[in-house]
Structures are given as C-alpha cells and as structure tokens.
C-alpha cells in the first residue's frame, strides 16, 4: 500500500519531531517545516495527502498558510489539521471558516491525534 505523505509545519523543534516520530511510527511519509515561509514553499513544490499546521509560526501564521492553500486550485483539496495552544473560539471558528478539516488544541493525546490523522486520510 502506498504511504501517505504528510507535511508538518510547527516551529517548536521538539513538538515537530515528536509529531514526525508518531506519524512515521503510524506508517506515513513525513516532511517538516519550522516556519511559515518554508512550509508554503514545500506545499507549492510537492503534493501532500495531509497538512498539519500550527497557528503561531514565524513569517506567516497558520491561518495565513491555510488561506493560501485554499486559494490554490491544485492544493485546495488537501485536508488540513490545525494544532494550536489557543483554543479560543474565534481562532477555531476562523480556522474552520477558512477550510480546516480538524482542530486540535494543545495539550493533546498522541494516540487520539493518530486516529484523527488516520480518519482524515481515509475520508480523502
């Protein structure tokens, strides 16, 4: 079976690595970016089956990246999961309005995160 390609855009190195390890353990192919600019460049250059986005990022924040993805006709169908330390109602609503498929608030449970990723990939 073909491995799913996932992009993780998260500026905290430890967080980024932990998510990467978990996804690799679940059998996915993982690419990472530590800031918004690199993330957008990777999205434009490659095709991913799923994108995991943090909200607070250097250069471009998660919501701005999400808007860019949804404006790109070739990338708009890629499911996006937003991870954020803020569970603020406005941010969550803004994320869903822009087209996010799921929203995870920190702190979160890793196995639950794996299941959410799996579910979105299956729906795709």
């Amino acid at each position: 079976m073909k491995k799913s390609r996932i992009l993780v855009i998260e500026d905290e190195n430890l967080m980024n690595r932990t998510i990467e390890f978990q996804l690799k353990k679940d059998g996915h192919e993982v690419d990472t970016a530590l800031d918004g600019k690199t993330g957008v460049a990777k999205i434009e250059a490659n095709y991913y089956d799923l994108i995991i986005l943090d909200i607070m990022l250097p250069y471009l924040n998660g919501l701005e990246i999400l808007a860019k993805i949804k404006q790109n006709p070739e990338r708009r169908d890629i499911p996006v999961i937003i991870i954020s330390a803020t569970g603020l109602e406005d941010t969550v609503l803004e994320g869903f309005k822009l087209g996010a498929n799921d929203f995870i608030t920190k702190p979160f449970i890793l196995p639950e995160f794996s299941i959410r990723v799996k579910r979105l990939l299956m729906l795709k």
Binding site: E12, L14, M15, T18, A85, K106, P107, F108, I109, P111
Partner: peptide
C-alpha cells in the same frame, strides 16, 4: 525545559 515543554503540550499517559 524539554520535559516541561512536553508536559504542557501533551496530555494523557505522556503527561
């Protein structure tokens, strides 16, 4: 510092 970061960001058994 690293343990605190993980503790803040993950819940459940990891915590």
């Amino acid at each position: 510092n690293e343990l605190i970061f993980l503790h803040r960001n993950f819940s459940g058994k990891v915590n």
